[in-house]
Design a protein around this nucleic acid. Sequence first.
DNA 1: ATGAATGTTAGCTA
DNA 2: ATAGCTAACATTCA
Length: 290
Amino acid sequence: MEKWHHKNNQIVGDNMPEMPEVETVRRGLNAQVKGCKITHVEIRYQNLITGDVEQFVEFVTGSTITNVDRRAKFLLIHLDNGYTIISHLRMEGRYRISADPAAIDKHSHAIFTLDNGQKMIYNDVRKFGRMQLWNTDDLDDNRSIAKLGPEPLSKGFTFDKLKPRIMRHRKDIKTVLLDQSVLSGLGNIYVDEVLWKVKIHPETSANHLSDKDIQNIIEASNQEMKAAIASGGSTVRSYIDATGHKGNMQNSLKVYGKEGTPCPRCGTEIEKIKVGGRGTHFCPKCQVIK
DNA sequence: ATGAATGTTAGCTA
DNA sequence: ATAGCTAACATTCA
């Protein structure tokens, strides 16, 4: 990890975020850059931008950030000119607000100069993250946004909506819960946590779930997201929020990264397997395929 | 030291 | 429409 203790070097993003981590980034950005005018834009990695890079720079330059919103794991940076920057951090994207030139390194792919002397720096070691400019009024027409299923803690996250969306699949439930078009916001950490909580084996076929299972998944997802947001996200590898503090949710994780340690519920060793290509943690005794 | 692993998504193919 | 696999990329770990 780099040194994060630069004075004047505020970190707003963490790597590898799920919804609670993105929410934490959103709050940090609102606290620090809301109302700021973007006086200059530099895109150092052209593939960061989906669409025309020159147009992105042209339209963003001179605009003012009115608010930062979020839909699932997408940040929506609203500008006062009718456009919104749709920003996805993917695996390792992060924002840093700093006036210190040392905050910029070889992994800084977009640099937004603000009228308060700070720079909003987008950093992304693996270069998976993407940004895209879109008409604020037509965000629902954006392909990435349009296909998102209901997200936990939102109005549409109900049994009636979720049941048919989940049950039409016969893939592993873990894979289905990670599919953002079925329901959105959950990622690899929290899906493992949710399935442990409701005692469902990650390789259970989605169409074999009972109504009670679905209801339990909904409740556990809401609880998990709420707790994770309240904790400022999970710091599994590294994490510092907008005010320089770590998240706390990693201390509450029961199975993610806990392979070889006893299940907090029954004492059986947590196992790690691969499901749908993703590392998957579960208790072989609590979570059995029916 | 090679291969596998890493909080993700989009885009192909069948 | 659904399922499964691959790519995008850099770094760390076994």
